[in-house]
Design a protein around this nucleic acid. Structure first.
Length: 574
RNA sequence: CGGGAUGUGGCGCAGCUUGGUAGCGCGCAUGGUUCGGGACCAUGAGGCCGCGGGUUCAAAUCCCGCCAUCCCGACCA
């Protein structure tokens, strides 16, 4: 591609509304432009990268036996009413009406549409298993779009939906997709981990996320330093330390040494304030967190130095709607403003983290303004269930092998789910098995954020000068710089190299512009193609061009007629 | 949705406090000199100052309303 005829508007200065590096660099490198909040134009250079990711995905999905389809972006409300998601998906679902005033939405995901297709066409076990995927634009009206393609409202996603005749088949499919995802992100040249994940609103019971590791990632990942255990922080299990122990403390009963005693703690609400004021350690304090949801309010008890993990609570209580309670709710339940809640005398069910069972003579809120209670013990209130309810911390033991957990940051680029029959049941997707019995189809769904993968690749691979593309994702393999197009010998040598490289199948961005050398060098660094070939008067006097690697900065002089071979060699190993 | 901030040529910003009809850097165009890491000189094009209303002889500047965008929290690929 001749730069002089290409649409590649690079920017010297960073637009003020970009925050993260990938967003800044995609704007500066002329890959994307903003149209509205969370909605972008993808320019030719950006599209080349997007296509590389898509093609890798296609090849691996096809290899895994999936078939590509193209589904509507506009979907009728009736389908969403069948699964009740028309009600539950909330404001994130962009709803629209057509001229007949019929209700539609712009698809944020395609379970309904695909299940509708399959239920109409599949009636025999002989047609299963079936795995259909799409690479298309979806729209989620995010509360807060940000970070460019990382979290847009309109975005390109690969979604695969699998249909199996039984649970075992579905699990086989799940494993096949897991392997395909591993192959995809490996081929993209990215440093990633697969982690155990929460299934969230999509539902289902088995789930992994694929995380590209980057310090700037929004997600926290825990990983064992000994075994291959890895999980999203919100999923990371904390093994109980010793047996859950709710025995009475020594000297219990009427002649117990410590009795609950109220103390004045004016204005002391946080763990730090209370422990400092009373001169106790954070682990001697019991935090009482009020959560409320559709099924009412509950109290969650964790040690003062621990944090509640809401995902674990929701799963234990089986109420997906549980959230941290509003201040008014807390006052209603405890009779005190936030900061003074305690378990004693509360009339809501109490769930406690395992570690709480080992606490003795601790401090809690006094359920009254400016009051805390000391000398508390578990026998002073009734805990419904002890379970793992807290967030894992760096240094916690691994739930699988007893190793030590470390924390990483990652960007979620893929998510795979075993769905079970949630959608097939709601929508009546049945088939007849070999014995003629009607059964419900087992489903799975498997997503990859294409644009986000591109952004994540940049987050993981850049320096102060610009992008440093992994070879498989680079828009072009080589930036060929003609430093002096007005000098015939330089121009001729450059043109010949461009022709030769192109003829040998190398993707070349040929900078033939009338620009100063510095401009070309800087644009090449910004765009980040893996190799750079420079042709200038200086080298040409010795019959040489220079070849330089974007990643390492390694540079060599190569005789003109050996450049093509050298480039191919370098790309193979870069 | 709550909290914070910002809207001025394509990009980055100043001007606003103290109203007098818009300026700087980059980019763009033309000519010249340059030419291996974002050149220099000269000339020039380009702006409903986010939108609407109000105050005033006069509004980018003061007042009111709206819109848009960005940042921090709850969602997700």
């Amino acid at each position: 591609m001749r730069y002089s005829r290409y649409f590649l508007p690079t920017l010297r200065e960073v637009p003020a509304d970009a925050e993260v590096v990938s967003h800044k660099l995609m704007l500066r490198a002329g890959m994307i432009r903003r149209v509205a909040a969370g909605i972008y134009d993808v320019l030719p250079l950006g599209l080349r990268v997007v296509r590389k990711v898509e093609n890798i995905i296609r090849e691996e999905m096809d290899r895994a036996g999936a078939h590509e389809v193209f589904l509507p972006s506009i979907q009728p409300a009736e389908l969403w009413e069948e699964t009740d998601r028309w009600n539950f998906y909330g404001k994130e679902l962009l709803r629209i009406r057509d001229r007949h005033n019929r209700e539609f939405c712009y698809g944020p995901t395609h379970e309904e549409v695909i299940t509708d297709l399959v239920r109409r066409e599949v009636r025999s076990y002989r047609q299963l298993p079936l795995n259909l995927y799409q690479i298309q634009t979806k729209f989620r009206d995010e509360i807060r779009p940000r970070f460019g393609l990382m979290r847009g409202r309109e975005f390109t996603m690969k979604d695969a939906y699998s249909f199996d005749s039984d649970r075992k088949g579905a699990e086989d499919t799940y494993r096949a997709m897991y392997d395909a995802y591993t192959a995809i992100f490996t081929r993209c040249g990215l440093d990633f981990r697969s982690v155990e994940a929460d299934t969230g609103k999509i539902g289902g019971s088995l789930s992994h996320e694929f995380m590209v590791l980057a310090d700037t990632g929004e997600d926290r990942v825990v990983s064992c330093h000994l075994c291959d255990y890895a999980a999203n922080l919100e999923m990371a299990a904390v093994p109980p330390q010793g047996k859950v122990d709710t025995s009475e403390p020594e000297g219990s009963g009427p002649d117990r040494v410590e009795r609950p005693k109220n103390v004045a703690t004016p204005g002391k609400r946080t763990v730090e304030e209370v422990t400092a004021f009373l001169g106790v350690r954070p682990q001697d304090l019991l935090k009482t967190i009020i959560m409320s949801g559709d099924q009412g309010s509950i109290g969650v008890l964790v040690r003062g130095d621990h944090e509640v993990n809401p995902v674990k609570v929701r799963r234990l209580v089986e109420d997906e709607t549980l959230e941290l309670a509003e201040p008014e709710t807390v006052e209603g339940v405890t009779g005190a403003p936030i900061g003074f809640a305690g378990p004693m005398g509360l009339e809501i069910p109490l769930y406690a983290d395992n570690a709480v069972s080992h606490m003795r003579d601790f401090v809690t809120g006094g359920n009254a303004m400016d009051v805390h209670t000391t000398g508390m013990n578990i026998s002073d209130f009734e805990v419904k269930v002890f379970d793992d309810l807290r967030e894992a911390r760096e240094g916690d033991p691994c739930p699988r092998c007893g190793g030590t957990l470390t924390f990483l940051r990652g960007i979620e680029v893929g998510h795979i789910f075993y769905l079970g029959t949630k959608y097939s049941e709601a929508m009546g997707a049945h088939f007849l098995d070999e014995k003629g019995r009607e059964k419900v189809i087992e489903m799975g769904c498997f997503g990859i954020g294409v644009g986000r993968t591109v952004a994540a690749a940049i987050e993981q691979n850049h320096d102060e000068k610009g992008i440093v593309w992994p070879v498989p994702l680079a828009p072009f393999s080589v930036s060929l710089l003609c430093l002096d197009p007005s000098a015939p010998e330089v121009l001729n040598a450059s043109e010949k190299l461009y022709d030769d490289l192109t003829a040998s199948g190398v993707e070349v961005l040929y900078d033939d512009r009338e620009e100063r050398a510095g401009v070309k060098f800087n644009d090449a660094d910004l765009i980040g193609n893996p190799a750079r070939v420079t042709v200038g008067k200086r080298g040409l006097q010795e019959g040489m061009a220079e070849i330089r690697l974007r990643g390492t900065g390694e540079e060599r002089k190569i005789p003109l007629d050996e450049v093509v071979a050298a480039v191919r060699e370098v790309l193979g190993q870069a």
